[in-house]
Write a protein that binds this DNA or RNA. Structure first.
Lengths: 236, 236
DNA sequence: GTCTATAGTCGGATAGAC
DNA sequence: GTCTATCCGACTATAGAC
């Protein structure tokens, strides 16, 4: 089901609706999508009711059906929206993080870029208010595959992990698909995720009341140390 | 619909001579608990139906009510069971991991013990087949506080994080509640969690078909390197 | 395009027999 | 202690008017 970058938006199994371009309903559609994003971010697919979404979006229930076919279609549409906005965000972040890595950097340069990527990712996850909303959705879906798994895996997770794993491999001057590099990539990413999908737990653990630029800086500093450790030979 | 092998259960199991008192329903209670543990491990509170649990446990629906009051009571009972078994498991693991740290170890010794704790924890999370069942339950509940949050936070999460944070602080010879040590503790723990609550995602990422002793060793080796990095001064 | 009304389903909990 | 039978509320989805 992996559609190309182009038509990530429309196309549920909607009868004859959206296909006619940007009409008046486009704004309604967006309102529903926003409400759904918020709702599915806060609770599981089963726990979220289409009723509440329709109320939050200030439309009647059948309107959801009209635009997205059924609950699952709406769910998938949410995933697609997240992917779109993630790309936009990362592109704006002035990083090549979202794009496949072209530069042939190794060693020192790779380490610097890895830090940049982690910083951009951290800024996105922890810094942006939107991401704070979607992150639980993405996290849940990836851990517990549902109707939107493939969309998120192929467009968010895989590119992210592979970029980071590749950079680590280059620090070591090993092949791009080096397994050890992948392990390190997972450790790094999940570590970062402690402060976003795991935000509330980390807040309580750290006795922070929020994660602002100051707190984020501390986290990134620890992650940088971890990255430096990757480059260093094992000490005993 | 439900009943499968009604004849199979009932009396055949409990060694009847053992206990004098009201041991009769205890076995039924346990069967329900096991089924619930499995169900709540696999899906959210909302998504799990008491009907399915009762079917899996091979009892009728009202029996759940009889033993646990309502769905939420059963949920809480699951959390308590997990805490109990976790303690037993960690105690058996030959580690002081579950108990408050008494030894006044610092520096080198603290580092060694930290590695031991992480190894024990890794063995428990990834190695044991039971933990594989509960982990999603615990993870979900901690990330997304529900009726069982306090039980799990106070008895699992907090002791675990504090032990690890304290050991890191001692490596640095800093106060037990050092914030940086806590950050590192979170990074370490969440890194490890990549391979248990995040198991399926990691399997796919690593292209592993399972996480056996061999894979676990590799993960622990990377975590050890991370621990060593904690001790090392920052390199640039 | 958006609504009201309703069909159809399912899940949690209770009553009361045995 | 464990069952059968049943109630009632809540949810998804559809039909059809405007």
């Amino acid at each position: 089901m992996s559609r190309k970058t182009s038509a990530l938006r429309k196309k549920a199994k909607v009868p004859a609706a959206v296909s006619a371009g940007y009409r008046k309903g486009e704004e309604t559609r967006q309102r529903i999508l926003d409400a759904a994003l918020k709702a599915f971010g806060a609770a599981s697919f089963k726990a979220v009711t289409t009723r509440r979404i329709s109320e939050a979006a200030d439309v009647s229930l059948p309107t959801l059906q009209y635009y997205f076919g059924d609950k699952e279609g709406l769910y998938r549409a949410c995933a697609e929206t997240i992917v779109e906005r993630y790309r936009g965000h990362m592109a704006m972040a002035g990083t090549r993080a979202a794009a496949p890595l072209k530069t042939r950097c190794v060693g020192e340069a790779a380490r610097a870029q890895l830090k940049a990527v982690i910083e951009a990712l951290g800024g996105f996850l922890v810094g942006s208010k939107e991401a704070q909303l979607w992150t639980p959705f993405v996290h849940r879906e990836l851990r517990d595959p549902g109707p939107a798994f493939e969309i998120l895996y192929e467009n968010l997770w895989r590119p992210g992990v592979e970029l980071i794993a590749r950079l680590i491999a280059r620090i070591w001057d090993r092949p791009d698909d080096d397994p050890d590099a992948r392990i390190r990539a997972l450790l790094l990413i999940f570590g970062l995720l402690a402060f976003q999908p795991g935000r509330s737990l980390s807040l309580r653990t750290m006795r922070w009341s929020s994660i602002g630029p100051e707190e984020l800086a501390k986290v990134l500093s620890s992650l940088d140390a971890q990255i430096d450790a990757i480059a260093a030979p094992v000490s005993t």
